[in-house]
Design a binder for these strands. Structure first.
Length: 301
DNA sequence: CCCCAGGGCCATA
DNA sequence: TATGGCCATGGG
């Protein structure tokens, strides 16, 4: 970390960095970034090696400080692209807000979460593993599992009295001893799914570019759900959080069910038709509505 | 002790 | 196609 470089990104309209920070800081035991009152820092993997970035707001700009041994022009471009992707800063969400404002029941969400963007998981392997880890268990426990995994086999950087972890690589996860994962309290199913996904990445059966090159959304869903452990919920979750597809609905999601039940007085587990009727006024913005509905449940789901 | 968590797979009918 | 059991643990 011998060199330092400041990178400025202009704030888009309808973007709130405070909302971004409050989403990242939901009281869960997150291990892949470090928060302060007004900044977030994380380890970043770049083509020319790893570094640490710290992001804060300075007036009308996002200021990203990159710490790295030797900083290249390519590093700077990649960091800028990473942050824009992570916080979904390139998207014009005016059309979404227009739809929200005229909705009878949901219009207050504009003001409750003003400038809140769909925060992503740019790393596809991490997004898929996180979908597996989070299935069927409460998020508090899911974050504990993730931390155990990351601390065991994620690469780390020590910088200014802090440890910054990378999410494990497919190879390092694949090579983890089964018993170690059992001791961490992963279920046998989750362990098998994680191995399967790791192996798929190692063999290049799945990658972000392979998904991006699929002809249709349906083809992407099929490619994802071909993987054992990835069902319809996980596929939509990953397309939303990693591929930045804004037209996804996480069918089967307990949090989504709960939000719709509370706001629309449906069954506790609303039918697909009931869910679709909520989303029908938000064509092309389903992922954003999905994300905002999650937010209505509060910091802890 | 019960039920359910940001599900999905498999067996059965 | 639909339904029920199973997974592992923790919180309510």
């Amino acid at each position: 970390m011998k060199e330092v470089q400041k990178i400025k990104i202009a704030l888009p309209v309808l973007f709130s960095f405070q909302q971004t920070l409050s989403f990242l800081d939901r009281g869960f035991d997150e291990c892949l970034y470090v928060l302060t009152n007004n900044s977030v820092a994380k380890r970043i993997e770049l083509s020319d090696g790893e570094g640490v970035i710290r992001i804060s707001q300075v007036k009308k700009w996002l200021e990203v400080i990159l710490y790295k041994d030797k900083i290249t022009r390519r590093d700077v471009n990649e960091v800028r692209a990473f942050v824009i992707d992570w916080f979904d800063m390139d998207r014009d969400i005016k059309p979404f807000y227009a739809l929200l404002k005229k909705h009878k029941i949901l219009n207050h969400l504009v003001y409750d979460y003003f400038g809140s963007r769909l925060i992503g998981i740019p790393n596809l392997f991490e997004a898929l593993c996180w979908a597996i880890i989070g299935q069927q268990i409460n998020l508090t426990f899911a974050y504990k599992l993730k931390r155990a995994l990351v601390e065991e086999c994620g690469e780390k950087t020590r910088f200014e009295d802090q440890v910054y972890y990378a999410f494990p690589s497919p190879k390092s996860l694949f090579n983890m001893d089964r018993d170690v994962l059992v001791k961490m309290k992963f279920s046998r199913q989750k362990i098998m799914y994680l191995y399967t996904i790791s192996n798929a990445f190692i063999n290049n059966d799945i990658s972000k570019s392979l998904l991006q090159n699929c002809k249709s959304k349906q083809a992407r869903i099929e490619k994802l759900t071909d993987i054992k452990g990835i069902g319809i919920w996980s596929a939509n979750y990953v397309l939303m959080k990693c591929l930045r597809d804004v037209s996804c609905i996480t069918y089967g999601d307990s949090g989504l069910n709960k939000a719709i039940y509370i706001l629309f007085a449906t069954d506790k587990k609303p039918s697909k038709e009931a869910i679709d009727s909520v989303f029908k006024d938000f064509k092309g913005w389903e992922s954003y509505l999905n994300f905002y509905l999650w937010k209505t449940l509060g910091s802890r789901l």
